[in-house]
Design a binder for these strands. Structure first.
Length: 216
DNA sequence: CCAGACGTTGTT
DNA sequence: GTCTGG
DNA sequence: CCAGACGTTGTT
DNA sequence: GTCTGG
C-alpha cells in the first residue's frame, strides 16, 4: 500500500505542525511516486525538505527507487539498512488512496506523520563523461529520496488491502526520528479516518484538485 | 574466489 | 556497500 | 500507485 | 508484457 496520498497543507502549516525549519509547498490532492514531496528530518535542526518519493540506495546505478519498505524486514535489507539506522523521516499526509479494483480514499482528521526513511546519493562524476562540456545540465546532481514503511493494515483498511502505511502516533514522532523507536514496534494504528469510494480520475497522476478526495 | 543481486505490490 | 549463490 | 510508451534516422 | 514517468 501507499502509492498515492494527499497533503492538504501549506509549507507554513507543516513547519508549524512539526516544529521544523520551512520550505515552500502547496497542498496536493494526488501525491505520486517520483514527485518531490515534503518530509521532516532531524539533522542539526529539524527541517522540512522536498525529497523525491522512491528511495534509491547510495550504491545503486539506476535512478528508480523503492516507494515502500516492509517494517518487518527494513532493518536487514541491504537496500534499506543504512537509511533505517541513521536516516529516518516523517512523511506528512492527511489521507491516502487505496485501490481495490476501484479507488478509495482514506482521509484523516488531521495531518499525520508516516514512518519514512531517506537516502542521499552523490552520482559518480567519473562515469558521466560529460564534465568536459561544463557540467551544466548533465543531471548529475545530489539526489535525495525517501520510502514509506508499511505494516499490516488496521481493521478499517483491511477491507480494502492487506498492507498499510505505518502511521505514527504524534508522541512516537520524536522516537522515530532519533532511532529509539524500532521498526518492529510499528503497529497498525487506528488513526481516525473516513473511507470513501472516489472517482477514477485519481488514477491519472496529472489530475490534482479538491474533488479527487470527495466521495461519489 | 568472483558474479550478481539488492524491493514492494499484487498476481499466478 | 554488503550479502548470497555458485 | 496508475498511465503511457514501447523506435530510428537525421536534423536542429 | 515490461519499462519509464509522474
Amino acid at each position: 500500500m501507499c502509492g498515492r496520498y494527499s497533503l492538504r497543507a501549506t509549507g507554513e502549516e507543516l513547519t508549524e505542525r512539526f516544529g521544523a525549519d520551512g520550505v515552500g509547498f502547496e497542498p496536493t490532492y494526488n501525491a505520486a511516486p517520483g514527485q518531490s514531496l515534503p518530509v521532516v528530518r532531524e539533522e542539526e535542526r529539524r527541517s522540512l525538505d522536498l525529497l523525491d518519493w522512491g528511495l534509491v540506495p547510495s550504491w545503486s546505478d539506476d535512478a528508480d527507487g523503492y516507494i515502500n519498505a516492509r517494517s518487518e524486514t527494513v532493518a536487514e535489507k541491504p537496500s534499506f539498512a543504512e537509511a533505517y539506522e541513521g536516516r529516518r523521516c516523517l512523511v506528512p499526509v492527511d489521507g491516502f488512496y487505496e485501490w481495490d479494483d476501484d479507488p478509495y480514499y482514506v482521509g484523516f482528521e488531521r495531518v499525520a506523520g508516516l514512518a519514512g526513511i531517506w537516502e542521499r546519493r552523490v552520482p559518480d562524476r567519473r562515469q558521466s563523461g560529460l564534465d568536459e562540456f561544463g557540467g551544466e545540465g548533465d543531471g548529475q546532481e545530489v539526489q535525495e529520496t525517501f520510502a514509506i514503511l508499511t505494516t499490516e493494515p488496521n481493521e478499517q483498511v483491511a477491507r480494502l488491502h492487506h498492507r498499510m502505511a505505518a502511521v505514527l502516533a504524534p508522541e512516537e514522532e520524536d522516537g522515530w526520528l532519533d532511532g529509539s523507536l524500532t521498526a518492529d514496534e510499528l503497529d497498525p494504528r487506528d488513526e481516525p479516518a473516513t473511507v470513501r469510494r472516489v472517482s477514477e480520475r485519481v488514477n491519472d497522476p496529472s489530475n490534482d484538485d479538491p474533488s479527487l478526495v470527495e466521495g461519489m
